[in-house]
């Protein structure tokens, strides 16, 4: 019996190579390579939905530009979020510095008062 039978009921969480997917959409793959992508589609609802959706984009040449744009916006957003978080942290640090200076000053004053009282 053919062990390939098991593929029929399997679900896959395998990653799909974005470049292979682009080539599939542009009909640049061999039959064997096409079959590999289609097997992933048949095993994963996410990949199947994604491929069916991407097939609706008429000008496939735009796809890479869309991906680049979304990638850039994602990282810009994350960078902004990070800067905001760091800005929030600054006042916390300034309080720490202020507290250290205050403690040092108090120590110096205390030292001077004790020294004067001894004399």
């Amino acid at each position: 019996m053919n062990p390939e039978f098991f593929n029929i009921i399997s679900h896959s969480n395998k990653d799909i190579d974005p470049q292979k997917l682009m080539d599939y959409l542009n009909n640049k793959l061999s039959d064997t390579e096409k079959h590999e992508i289609e097997k992933l589609m048949a095993e994963s609802s996410l990949i199947n939905d994604a491929v069916e959706g991407l097939e609706h984009i008429k000008d496939k040449g735009k796809l890479q530009a869309y991906v680049d744009q979304l990638n850039k916006e994602l990282h810009n957003h994350l960078q902004k979020k990070k800067l905001r978080r760091e800005k929030k942290r600054l006042p916390e640090y300034s309080w720490i510095y202020f507290a250290i200076i205050l403690i040092l000053l108090l120590c110096i004053i205390a030292y001077m008062v004790i020294r004067q009282s001894i004399h």
Binding site: V51, L78, K81
Partner: peptide, 25 residues
């Protein structure tokens, strides 16, 4: 560190674009 999320999410850009296209056309 959100940079890890950046690396993770960017793997899904093409797939998510496809899913959104399937529903929204």
């Amino acid at each position: 560190n959100n940079d890890w999320l950046g690396l993770l999410l960017e793997r899904y850009i093409l797939l998510l674009l496809g899913v959104c296209m399937k529903y929204l056309k």
